[in-house]
Every structure is written in C-alpha cells, then in structure tokens.
Computed example of a mutant assay.
Amino acid sequence: MELKSYFECFDIFTSGEIDYAISLFSKRKLNKGDYFIQEGQKCSEVAFVQKGIFRSFYASQSGDEITYCFRFPNELIAAYSSFITGNPSVENLQALSPAELLIIQQKDIDLLVKENPKWVTFLRIIAEQNYLELETRVFQLQRDSAQERYQNMLKKQPQYIQQIPLQYLASYLGITQRHLSRIRKQLVFETNVL
C-alpha cells in the first residue's frame, strides 16, 4: 500500500486534499538498528512506514529493554506521548530491518488541521485506533496465555514475525526466549501432526 491508498481507506478526503497532504511528506531511509526516535528526544514528526519493521521499547529500572510494540509497513509511527505533550520521549523506536519512511513534521500537521477540519477527524480516528490497540494489548497480557498471544501475532503479521529477533518477540510476549522456543516447537509439532 502506498500513502495515498492509506489515506483513501479512511474515506474522508478528496483526491486533491490527499495529494496536498502527501506533498508535505519527505522521504527518509534508516538502516537496521537505526532509531526513528530515542528516549530523551522530543518527537516532532510522524512517519508512514513504506518498508521495514520497527520495535518500540523502553528501559526498565534494572536496565532491561522491554519491547511493548511492533510497527510494520503501511502503519504510522511516532512517539505519541512526546508528540502530543512536547515532553522528551520515554520510548525508543528502532528499525529491525532496513526501512523507508515518509515523514511529516508536526508544524505541517498543525497547518493541515488549521486549513481543513477533516484532519481533526482523521487524527481522532488515529487516536482511537491507538487506544483500542493499547486496550487489546492490556487485555491479552492479562487474559491470554503466551502461546495465544504468539498465535495472535502470527495471524496478524505472518510475513514479518520470522524477521523479528527472538529476544524482542519474547520481551513483547512477556516470556523468556527459552519459553518462546518451546512454544514455537509445540506449534510446529501440532501443525505437522494435523
């Protein structure tokens, strides 16, 4: 999917409004391991992921990296709390593969909102989607087993899961790498038996 198709999916904007918005984006490439934003920096831009996988993580008090979110192609990324408040980010967004992004600056988003109230509607929808995703994640952590959480990831993003290093997947699932390896072996066994 390209950015134009992404905006068209919301069925809010005219083709001309979308073209104008796209003209405000710029391209950026990141290498594997590069950061879109790091803890302590202020987030003043949003990116549309054309290519690549990202992980969002923070450091615990003991210094462990806790992965709490992955982002894939055709999704928006930003350190949203920093973007909204203007405070330094408490999270890191790191590319897990070579990535290509389309970037829009906060000042340009503010301009779109000022010129056209449809962008307020769009931003509300994005905020609602992020809230629902967060709520689902909390419910899954409290209700579902690690195997169920892993299977859910496989259903949603099967083409990308194999590209994510085990330690990040395990951290996201809230389990050890050893436990994740057992889950994967069990699923392979169950698939072969069927």
Score class of each variant (00 low, 15 high):
residue 31 N to Q: 14
residue 167 Q to A: 00
residue 26 S to A: 06
residue 120 V to K: 13
residue 110 D to Q: 13
residue 174 G to Y: 04
residue 9 C to R: 14
residue 173 L to M: 06
residue 56 S to K: 06
residue 44 S to Q: 15
residue 151 Q to I: 06
residue 33 G to Q: 02
residue 144 D to R: 07
residue 117 P to C: 05
residue 179 H to K: 05
residue 81 S to M: 04
residue 32 K to W: 05
residue 182 R to F: 10
residue 191 T to E: 15
residue 82 S to R: 02
residue 74 N to R: 09
residue 138 V to L: 14
residue 188 V to D: 11
residue 18 I to H: 00
residue 59 A to Q: 10
residue 183 I to K: 02
residue 181 S to V: 03
residue 149 R to C: 07
residue 151 Q to E: 15
residue 40 G to A: 11
residue 157 Q to C: 01
residue 184 R to M: 10
residue 2 E to Y: 11
residue 79 A to N: 02
residue 143 R to L: 14
residue 143 R to C: 14
residue 80 Y to L: 11
residue 16 G to S: 14
residue 108 D to S: 12
residue 101 L to F: 03
residue 82 S to E: 02
residue 112 L to Q: 04
residue 137 R to E: 10
residue 131 Y to R: 08
residue 96 L to W: 02
residue 136 T to A: 14
residue 66 I to G: 01
residue 51 K to V: 11
residue 17 E to M: 00
residue 9 C to G: 03
residue 12 I to Y: 04
residue 155 K to I: 14
residue 115 E to H: 08
residue 152 N to W: 08
residue 125 I to P: 00
residue 13 F to L: 11
residue 84 I to Y: 13
residue 182 R to V: 07
residue 192 N to S: 14
residue 175 I to M: 01
residue 130 N to R: 15
residue 161 I to M: 06
residue 181 S to T: 11
residue 128 E to G: 05
residue 18 I to F: 02
residue 14 T to A: 03
residue 89 S to H: 07
residue 176 T to E: 04
residue 29 K to R: 13
residue 3 L to H: 05
residue 57 F to Q: 02
residue 82 S to L: 00
residue 93 L to M: 11
residue 50 Q to E: 15
residue 170 A to D: 01
residue 52 G to Y: 03
residue 159 Q to D: 15
residue 124 R to T: 11
residue 166 L to I: 14
residue 47 A to V: 08
residue 158 P to G: 08
residue 56 S to Y: 15
residue 131 Y to I: 10
residue 44 S to E: 15
residue 169 L to V: 04
residue 41 Q to F: 13
residue 65 E to V: 00
residue 168 Y to V: 05
residue 44 S to V: 13
residue 157 Q to N: 13
residue 52 G to T: 09
residue 142 Q to T: 10
residue 34 D to I: 05
residue 109 I to D: 03
residue 4 K to T: 09
residue 3 L to V: 08
residue 94 Q to M: 13
residue 26 S to N: 10
residue 77 I to M: 03
residue 185 K to G: 02
residue 180 L to A: 04
residue 166 L to K: 07
residue 184 R to D: 04
residue 32 K to Y: 02
residue 87 N to S: 15
residue 46 V to M: 13
residue 97 S to Q: 10
residue 90 V to R: 11
residue 146 A to R: 09
residue 189 F to G: 00
residue 52 G to E: 05
residue 99 A to I: 01
residue 113 V to Y: 09
residue 168 Y to T: 09
residue 57 F to K: 06
residue 187 L to F: 01
residue 150 Y to H: 10
residue 178 R to T: 13
residue 77 I to K: 03
residue 119 W to M: 06
residue 156 K to L: 14
residue 9 C to V: 01
residue 160 Y to R: 08
residue 161 I to T: 07
residue 164 I to G: 05
residue 168 Y to I: 06
residue 48 F to R: 01
residue 119 W to Q: 08
residue 97 S to T: 14
residue 86 G to A: 07
residue 19 D to L: 12
residue 85 T to C: 05
residue 174 G to F: 05
residue 16 G to P: 00
residue 48 F to G: 02
residue 129 Q to I: 07
residue 119 W to T: 09
residue 132 L to Y: 12
residue 180 L to T: 05
residue 28 R to E: 15
residue 157 Q to A: 07
residue 37 I to Q: 08
residue 84 I to K: 12
residue 46 V to C: 10
residue 183 I to C: 00
residue 81 S to P: 04
residue 137 R to M: 10
residue 29 K to I: 08
residue 177 Q to P: 06
residue 4 K to E: 12
residue 52 G to F: 04
